[in-house]
Amino acid sequence: MKILVIEDDKTTGPFVAKGLRQEGHTVDLVANGRDGLLQATTADYDILVLDRMLPGLDGLSLIKTLRGAGQRTPAIMLTALSGVEDRIEGLEAGADDYLVKPFAFGELSARVAALARRPGYQQQETTLQAADLQMDLVHHRVTRAGVDIPLLPREFTLLEHLLRRKGRVQTRTMLLEAVLGINFYPQTQLVETHISRLRGKGDRPFYQDLIENVRGAGYRIAA
């Protein structure tokens, strides 16, 4: 799934994003409410995970604005406010679930999965495709020309990220941050290593290369 995490805490935000990525999700992380609102209204997400107390625009105002605009993406609100009235206020603002800090990541993961099982979620995009390559997001399966392509979790996440942005170049830095959870590490060859593995499994055995290396820019899957 593609998940937007809106959390300004420098420990909680990266912790949540890293955990969700390790489970195979594509995760974008922003640290303030205004950027979160912009991101949530300009890109398609399956689930939102947002803090209640955010700089720029608080979580309650953010979710109210989204709901008022007809945005129905399921949302889990994180907060240190544990009172019953606080939880009611969050749910009445438009949040689908409410998780009090501190929390175990396993519980957050279970709540994300529970939201994904709700009726209506299956109406959202569940298959991504480029040429004869298909990615089944529900069953976590990739095939090309009808042949199963076994991928490791990070390879699956990297391919999903590229497929969702088909036709758009993704720089090495974008891929490090969004898929591998690394903010700055200029010497690492992780992106190149994972791209090479993806090509070895999904491109080289077939007649057409789908992953393009745009020299001096990054990588993309042609539209």
Results as ranks from 00 to 15, higher is better:
Ala113Val: 10
Glu125Gly: 13
Leu158Phe: 06
Asp136Cys: 07
Val147Gln: 06
Arg141His: 10
Ala113Pro: 13
Val147Phe: 02
Met135Trp: 13
Gln122Asn: 12
Arg111Met: 11
Arg144Glu: 07
Val138Cys: 05
Gln134Trp: 13
Ile149Tyr: 05
Ile149Gln: 04
Leu152Asn: 03
Ile149Met: 04
Leu158Asp: 00
Val147Trp: 02
Thr126Arg: 08
Thr157Cys: 02
His140Tyr: 06
Ala145Val: 11
Phe156Lys: 01
Arg118Met: 15
Arg111Pro: 10
Ile149Gly: 02
Gly120Tyr: 14
Arg118Gln: 14
Arg117Ile: 14
Met135Leu: 15
Glu125Ala: 12
Ala145His: 05
Thr127Asp: 07
Thr127Cys: 09
Val112Arg: 03
Glu125Tyr: 13
Leu128His: 03
Leu151Asp: 01
Asp148Val: 15
Ile149Phe: 08
Pro119Trp: 08
Thr126Asp: 07
Asp136Gly: 05
Gln129Asn: 08
Leu108Pro: 14
Ala131Tyr: 10
Gln122Thr: 09
Asp136Phe: 08
Arg144Ala: 09
Leu159Ile: 00
Ala130Arg: 07
Ala110Thr: 04
Pro150Ile: 00
Thr127Pro: 13
Thr126Trp: 12
Pro150Ser: 07
Leu128Arg: 03
Asp136Met: 06
Ala116Pro: 15
Thr157Ala: 05
Pro150Thr: 03
Tyr121Ile: 09
Gln124Asp: 10
Glu125Thr: 14
Leu158Asn: 01
Leu128Gly: 04
Val142Cys: 02
Leu115Phe: 15
Val147His: 04
Leu133Val: 15
Gln124Lys: 11
Ala130Val: 09
Asp132Ser: 12
Pro150His: 01
Arg118Cys: 11
Ala114Asp: 02
Gln134Ile: 13
Gly146Asp: 04
His139Ala: 03
Leu108Ser: 04
Glu125Pro: 14
Ala131Pro: 06
Gly120Pro: 15
Thr126Ser: 07
Val142Gln: 00
Leu108Thr: 06
Leu152Thr: 07
Arg141Tyr: 06
Thr157Glu: 00
Arg111Asp: 13
Thr143Trp: 10
Arg111Thr: 11
Asp132Ala: 13
Gln129Ala: 03
Thr127Val: 15
Gln123Phe: 13
Arg111Lys: 10
Pro153Ala: 04
Leu158Gln: 00
Arg117Leu: 12
Glu125Asp: 05
Arg141Leu: 10
Leu115Tyr: 15
Gln134Asn: 12
Gly120Asn: 08
His139Lys: 03
Val138His: 06
Phe156Val: 02
His140Arg: 09
Ala110Ser: 03
Gly120Trp: 14
Thr157Tyr: 00
Val138Asp: 08
Leu115Cys: 11
Gly120Leu: 15
Phe156Met: 03
Phe156Glu: 01
Val138Thr: 04
Ala110Ile: 01
Leu128Asp: 02
Gly120Arg: 12
Pro153Asn: 01
Leu108Phe: 13
Gly146Leu: 06
Val147Gly: 00
Ala130Ile: 08
Thr126Met: 12
Leu137Phe: 15
Gln122Cys: 13
Ile149Ala: 04
Gln129Ser: 02
Phe156Asn: 00
Met135Cys: 14
Ser109Glu: 02
Thr127Tyr: 14
Ile149Asn: 04
His139Pro: 01
Gln123Ile: 14
Gln124Leu: 10
Phe156Ala: 01
Ala131His: 09
Ser109Pro: 02
Ala130Asp: 02
Ala130Thr: 05
Met135Asn: 09
Ser109Ala: 05
Gln129Arg: 07
